[in-house]
Design a protein around this nucleic acid. Structure first.
Lengths: 125, 125, 125, 125
DNA sequence: GTGGTCTAGACCACC
DNA sequence: GTGGTCTAGACCACC
């Protein structure tokens, strides 16, 4: 089940993008299964302390991106198939990795240093 | 030379920490060489549009961390030796790497996937 | 040039959909050429007597549908290539035709009657 | 039998015109046979949630157009003969067809395209 | 209750 | 000025 109480919003990125991003991560982490229902727009808005319109924008984005389905007035349902899943995984993964590589090069890390350090901490985290 | 005009301050972290962090990155990237002088407190404060006290706090932090020396009234000078350098490198590096590993595991990436992807984009960035 | 002064809004369909629909028709009719700039959100809102947010929603829809491009803060530009054009043409065309056929069958028109009547009035309109 | 519960009124056209139009369509579709009695003015007004005067206006229009007969206090009866039928068919048909042709030309459809598309979807609808 | 649309008005960064 | 985001609050149809 998607636990929105663990989502803390920053002011660096649009809120509706952060919500969609959070749901994507939850899907990849296996916390959101296909068929699962998200809270209603109003409910989530209350929970996050934001405006229902902003939640609506987030839900619309998720529908456009393909992993949320809204039918009539009966709530919104997580949808995933292999294609959607791999597209989400790809997007998040690519983002993470390039952010890391950019920052690593920024401080003159070498490829070997990067790999060694990741290897070093991987199992401890 | 450290170019502070490229530093944009966020409101997520204490400003003086951001300044120190920026200087550290500049040192590692080779843009700040030992012996180089940073702008005066007032000058930098004006440039960044912040209070001179905040800059003072940043300079103090950098002195405490060992890569800035202030002698009398003659301004503040970048100082690095191998020990300082490796300690900075370690700190920044560790942060980057653990942030990456945490996020990667968050979305169920495997070690192999992480390494392969980094390898894939390393030379393109 | 897209002449929005000829667009009259009804209350049967979402306003932002009507705006996008109007622009699509203008493109197909040859009144909106690629590279042409639409008015700013605020300007069009004033012209149509609606809220800028609604115009924003319309422009977003048009971007999503592929025939509008917004780069930075420099206004929004009509974009068309063969693919976009044929996709718009297809959509509008299919809609028109099926609406007509549904209505025609509703009143028990036969295929022959439909064709004969269309042929009869085609050149007079 | 004319099922008025399927009639939803818009605010784009006079309500009494919409009622008459609906009855005409029902006649052409074969749902309203000659001799069939329409509900009383008051009854239909209640059903549609409108003023009985408006229904009266609609019934008057249908009488004037020739397909409704009211004799004394014994209600209103659908009347059709070949002449009436073909006149209704003509009117509705012409409207549909010219609306379609106008819209089709609006988006630069050619006659051939129109015919081909109608032919294509005719049997599927 | 639900999703969805719209307004009025504020604020942001970018130029 | 520009595009874009967000809130507060209203209203709609559908159930």
């Amino acid at each position: 089940m998607v636990d929105f109480s663990k989502l803390t919003l920053s002011n660096k990125e649009p809120v509706y993008v952060q919500i969609a991003y959070y749901v994507k991560k939850q899907i990849l982490a296996g916390f959101a299964e296909p068929g699962e229902e998200l809270p209603s727009r109003r409910e989530l808005a209350a929970l996050l302390g934001i405006n229902p319109n902003t939640v609506q924008k987030a839900y619309k984005l998720m529908e456009d991106e393909g992993y949320l389905r809204t039918i009539g007035n009966s709530g919104s349902i997580i949808y995933t198939d292999d294609e959607v899943l791999s597209s989400i995984r790809n997007e998040l993964t690519k983002g993470l990795v390039s952010d890391f590589v950019i920052a690593a090069k920024d401080i003159n890390m070498t490829f070997k240093q990067a790999i060694d350090l990741i290897s070093e901490v991987w199992d401890d985290i």
